[in-house]
């Protein structure tokens, strides 16, 4: 394969991967953030302590976390078809990716929010703040650096998952690597795909770390 043949495949693959990862990340945040907060609030000693709700949320998260992604991918095909009308292509892949990543991110959110000093929650309550105030003005801002670190980890996991999605017709770099690199024995091309994935993962990690550092510095800075 020449570079001219490889280049459009790589470009399209990267675009598809980024598309899948971006949208599934957005949905994971929308789903995982409330779920993670719910886990903390309904836990024993939490502001909205509720055994049943906590157990149900816990079961959902554990179920999602314990299923191997490749199984989830296949198992969700009917659901995916119901939601987006098809089970192949990048858009269809957003569904299983998001379903897989929501519980993952929810656990990370739970850990991050749990680390916020109870005293701060108490201080906000003492000022007359209700539960929404505590969450929005204290828990989330205080946990923001950990949340961003968690999001970084989630996005990187999604990149890995998205490569697997390639195996079931999802498109993206994973699909390119399987089709050309594995099935057609184009080893150099496969290595190139891997290199592109490494670059993407590194870029995401650096961006995440940079954001966390920036926040930490802001908290220590004079202005």
């Amino acid at each position: 394969m020449t570079w001219d043949e490889m280049e459009p495949l790589l470009t399209q693959g990267s675009v598809d991967t980024l598309y899948m990862v971006l949208w599934s990340a957005v949905i994971s945040v929308l789903g995982g953030l409330p779920l993670g907060i719910l886990l903390v609030l309904t836990d024993k000693g939490g502001l909205l302590q509720s055994g049943p709700v906590n157990r149900i949320a816990g079961v959902i998260v554990n179920l999602g976390r314990s299923l191997p992604f490749i199984i989830l991918l296949v198992a969700l095909i009917p659901f995916t078809r119901f939601v987006v009308g098809t089970s192949i292509g990048p858009t269809a892949m957003v569904v299983p990716l998001a379903v897989g990543a929501i519980p993952f991110f929810a656990r990370l959110v739970e850990t991050a929010v749990r680390e916020v000093d109870r005293g701060i929650v108490e201080a906000v309550q003492a000022m007359g703040g209700g539960v929404p105030t505590v969450v929005l003005k204290a828990l989330l801002p205080q946990a923001l650096p950990s949340l961003i670190a968690g999001l970084t980890t989630t996005v990187i996991t999604l990149i890995g998952y998205s490569a697997m999605a390639g195996a079931v017709g999802g498109g993206g770099l994973g699909s390119v690597a399987v089709t050309y690199g594995y099935q057609r024995f184009e080893t150099p091309f496969m290595l190139l795909t891997v290199a592109v994935l490494i670059v993407i993962v590194t870029a995401v990690q650096l961006a995440g770390d940079g954001a966390v550092r920036l926040l930490a510095r802001r908290e220590r800075a004079t202005t």
Partner: peptide, 22 residues
Amino acid sequence: AELRAARSRIGMVFQHFNLLSS
């Protein structure tokens, strides 16, 4: 809501300050 309103008129300071670092 009534209790929260009443709390907002009672100041409280803590041993470990409990300020928001953010």
